[in-house]
Amino acid sequence: MQQLTNRSKQVSNKEMTLAERIYLPAIAHGMAITIKHFFQKKVTIRYPEVKRYLGPVFRGRHVLKRDADGRERCTACGLCAVACPAEAISMVAEERQKGEEHLYREEKYAAVYEVNMLRCIFCGLCEEACPKQAVYLRHDEFVPVFTERDQVIWGKDLLVEDMNNRYLREAWTKEEAHAQDLKKAAGAISHVEPRAIP
């Protein structure tokens, strides 16, 4: 059989030697190993202060994108709500009025768009369903811990993208994500630190 590592040992039932039977050399050996680990670098990441980069395809909180002119992309078609397995999305559609063309891209838009963050399982199906590329799960921001009931349902005030701080994803495809990983492994630091928004 092919060995996966070179550390495996064949087990045998042979008589133990005296050194093995008095057990002390084995104890000394074990204690040498543990004391080596005692002085090794620790792997702990001190979470709230230090946050790990979770990769370009991490599925965090939602964002409702705007287009290049700052118009909301969502047309309130409801496909995301239909796709959602957790039934977390609800919306109220509205017709665009004259003079609102700079606000909404399509003739119909979502006047209310709510995501229940307690129901959401962050599967990303809404993102896949959207025909207008309007809803995305950010890879760089978490949903923070809830302390009140009314923090659970996120409305458009929290969801719609801020034009001064647009959401850019660093990689879209598997290949791009892989290239990103290689770059990170080579020491290139990603400019995105994951954070929980208030």
Binding site: T34, I35, H37, F38, F39, Q40, K41, K42, V43, T44, R46
Partner: peptide, 9 residues
């Protein structure tokens, strides 16, 4: 000590 031996803090 337990933490340090197990590479934790």
């Amino acid at each position: 000590v337990a933490g340090f031996i197990q590479d934790r803090l």
